[in-house]
Computed example of a mutant assay.
Amino acid sequence: MKKVTFKISKIVASLALMVTALNVNTTCLFLLHQPKLPKGAEKLYKY
């Protein structure tokens, strides 16, 4: 059971990293709402 939990947690962590990287590199289409990003997310900015 521990191995399954560990694998699932690795998948969830990598998915969270990918979503955060996608969120950092895109902007909101509506100019009035841009969600705040967590600390350290600026490191994932590509430009």
Rank of each mutant, 00 (worst) to 15 (best):
L29W: 00
M1I: 06
S14W: 09
V12Y: 08
K7A: 08
A13R: 02
L32H: 07
L31E: 04
Y45F: 12
K3H: 11
L22A: 13
V24A: 08
A21I: 02
H33P: 07
K10W: 02
T20P: 05
I11P: 06
N23D: 14
I8S: 12
N25Q: 05
I8F: 12
T20R: 06
K10I: 08
T5Q: 11
T27F: 04
E42Q: 01
L32T: 01
K39F: 10
T20E: 14
V24P: 08
A41C: 08
A16N: 02
A13E: 05
P38M: 09
T27C: 05
K43C: 04
M1C: 15
Y45I: 03
Y47C: 02
P38C: 01
I11V: 13
N23H: 11
Q34S: 09
K7I: 02
K46C: 06
M1Q: 15
F6D: 15
P38A: 04
A41S: 14
A16F: 01
K7P: 03
L44H: 07
E42M: 06
V19M: 10
M18N: 06
V24K: 08
L15Q: 06
V4R: 10
V19F: 11
I11G: 09
L22D: 14
L44G: 07
A16Y: 01
K46L: 13
A13Y: 01
G40T: 00
I8A: 12
L15T: 15
M18D: 06
Y47G: 14
N25C: 02
L44C: 09
A21S: 02
M18W: 04
L31S: 10
L22P: 04
F30T: 05
F30K: 06
T5H: 13
V4Q: 12
K3F: 15
K2T: 13
L37H: 00
V12R: 10
K36P: 03
K7Y: 06
L15E: 10
C28L: 04
K3P: 03
F30V: 05
M1V: 11
V19D: 07
S14P: 03
